[in-house]
């Protein structure tokens, strides 16, 4: 089952008289239950693509379908609903609300949807799932980076989204914590069939997923699965390519 389908997705930014094609005609299909990474250097368009897939941003042209719903032409309110119901975000900087406790952060998306009498119970179960049941009444400042990111994952899961979009989720974590977090995401994908898309520039992170889509200058330059021959190449070109050959990117 296809959970996400993008066709010729394009985002053009105008800066004065010049145009930046941050995402330049990307077509991408993601099936339910995939665990994949979108790779690229800074300026390759990967963050813009994530924003487009996450319905935070409207494409300049192209088509996008998430979980069977056409996103193009949706109003702001409809986009908000799609984000709330179909998409779970995990950000590099965790992005928890500083004034709310862990469990309140997990419940934040519920505030904007229909009433859910079992919301707190569900949120508690999710904190337990990410191993933070004992921290539910702590505020973000009282939690470590890894713990904060787990709270963010629990928050992303609370509305049972069709897809989790994670933007450099380990970017602010040390390597041991990163590994544990990736293991958690991996488990969620394996055991719960969750579709997860991770945006990263880190080959180690991307290498832990099952599929790597590489971007450069807003275009897909490689799209390989774990059992494909060119999986390692898709992961590694960036690491081995001489810096001079790599185009100067735009953000």
């Amino acid at each position: 089952m296809t959970i996400l389908r993008a066709k010729d997705l394009t985002k053009v930014y105008r800066r004065g008289s010049s145009e930046v094609r941050a995402v330049d005609g990307i077509s991408l299909t993601v099936a339910a239950g995939e665990f994949m990474a979108i790779m690229g250097r800074s300026g390759s368009g990967k963050t813009t693509l994530l924003d487009l897939l996450g319905c935070l941003l409207r494409p300049t042209s192209g088509a996008l379908e998430i979980d069977g719903r056409t996103v193009i032409g949706a109003s702001d309110g409809q986009l908000a609903t799609i984000r709330r119901e179909r998409i779970g975000f995990v950000f590099q900087e965790f992005n928890l609300m500083p004034t709310l406790t862990a469990i309140e952060n997990v419940m934040l998306p519920l505030r904007y949807g229909p009433r859910r009498p079992r919301g707190r119970t569900d949120a508690r179960a999710l904190l337990e799932l990410v191993g933070l049941a004992h921290r539910e009444s702590h505020r973000p400042t009282e939690l470590s980076g890894g713990e904060q990111q787990r709270v963010a994952i629990a928050r992303a899961l609370v509305n049972q989204p069709a897809v989790i979009l994670a933007d450099e989720p380990t970017g602010e974590l040390d390597s041991a914590t990163s590994e544990r977090l990736m293991a958690t995401l991996r488990d969620l994908n394996r055991n719960r069939g969750l579709t997860i898309i991770i945006v990263t520039h880190d080959a180690a992170i991307a290498g832990a997923t099952d599929r790597v889509v590489r971007l450069s200058d807003g275009r897909v330059t490689a799209d390989a699965r774990r059992d494909d021959e060119d999986f390692v190449r898709a992961l590694g070109t960036d690491v081995t390519a001489p810096a001079l050959l790599d185009p100067v990117g735009f953000r």
Partner: peptide, 16 residues
């Protein structure tokens, strides 16, 4: 601003 962005990302409509 950032917190508003977070709320929007998790699906808060303009009215909320």
């Amino acid at each position: 601003v950032r917190e508003i962005g977070i709320k929007k990302a998790v699906g808060a409509p303009t009215g909320a």
